[in-house]
Write a protein that binds this DNA or RNA. Sequence first.
DNA 1: TCATACTGTAATAAAATATATTACAAATAT
DNA 2: ATATTTGTAATATATTTTATTACAGTATGA
Lengths: 135, 135
Amino acid sequence: MISGKFAITIHILTLLTKFPDEYLSSEFIAGSMNLHPVLVRKEIANLKKNNIVESKEGKNGGTKLLKSASNISLDTIFKMTFDTVTLGFSKNTPNPNCPVGKKINENLENLYENINEKISLQLSGITLENFSNQF
Amino acid sequence: MISGKFAITIHILTLLTKFPDEYLSSEFIAGSMNLHPVLVRKEIANLKKNNIVESKEGKNGGTKLLKSASNISLDTIFKMTFDTVTLGFSKNTPNPNCPVGKKINENLENLYENINEKISLQLSGITLENFSNQF
DNA sequence: TCATACTGTAATAAAATATATTACAAATAT
DNA sequence: ATATTTGTAATATATTTTATTACAGTATGA
C-alpha cells in the first residue's frame, strides 16, 4: 500500500547527497522537512538495512551515504519503501460465490503488478544524482 | 492520493459488462463485493457523471452500461477515480529556508506526473472488455 | 392508489492507517 | 563526566477510508 515513506526517504537522500562527506543528524534532516526526527530515524533504519547509508551514534554522530549517488537508483528506493502500488482497497474480501468476486483480486493483482513493473522500469533510469541535481 | 475507488469501480463495471442488458441493483453489486450498497451507489454516481453508466430509480431500478465495454478504457477509470498517484505524503510542508525543502515538492510532483503518464499509457491499452474477459 | 423496491445523498460513526510525541537506553566525542 | 546523538519501543494524535444510518424521491405493478 502507498505511504509517505518514499517521499521522506528521497528527501533524506537528497540532503545526504548534497553533503556527501558529513554525518547529518536526524534533527538537521527533520528540520528541512518539518518532520519529527524519530520518523527520520525510522527511515534511516530502513536505509541502513539496505546498505545505502551508514550512521554513527553518539556526539557528532549522524548519517551519510555509503555509496555514490550516481550508483543509487530511485527504483531501489521505490522497492524499499513499498510493498506494491495497489491503486487501493486493502480490505478486499469479495464474495467467493460470485464468479466475478472470486477472481477479482487475482486479476487486479496482475494489473497492479504490471503497473509496478512500469514504474520500476521508469525509476530505474533515474539515479539519486539525477534527482539531486535538480536542486 | 490513492484510494479504493479504482478497484471498486472496476468491480462494478465488470459486473455490468457481464449483464449488459440488465439493470443491476446496488445491493446485488454490493453482494458480489462484500461492501455496503451506499459505497456502490457513490461510485455509480461518479460513473454517471462521466457518462459511462445510466441508472433507473424506483422498483426494478438499477444501473447498466451506457456504452460497449470495448469502448471503455481502464485509463478512463483511472483518471476518474484518482487525482494522481502520489507515492504518498499529503501533509508535506517542508522548510522553505532549506534549498532542498524549498524545491522538493515541485520535484516530487514532476516525478509523480511522469509516473502517472506511464500508468495512463499502459491502462489506455486495456479495455473493460479485455479485463472482463478474464472472468 | 398504495405498498414495495429501488436510487440519491447527506450526516455521522467506526475502523484503519499515517504521522507525531514521549521516553529512555546505549554510544561516543571532547 | 558531560553533552549530544542514535535506536527503538510504546503510545497518542490526526487523517483518511470505509461503513452505517436515515430518509426523501421515484417508478412499478397488484
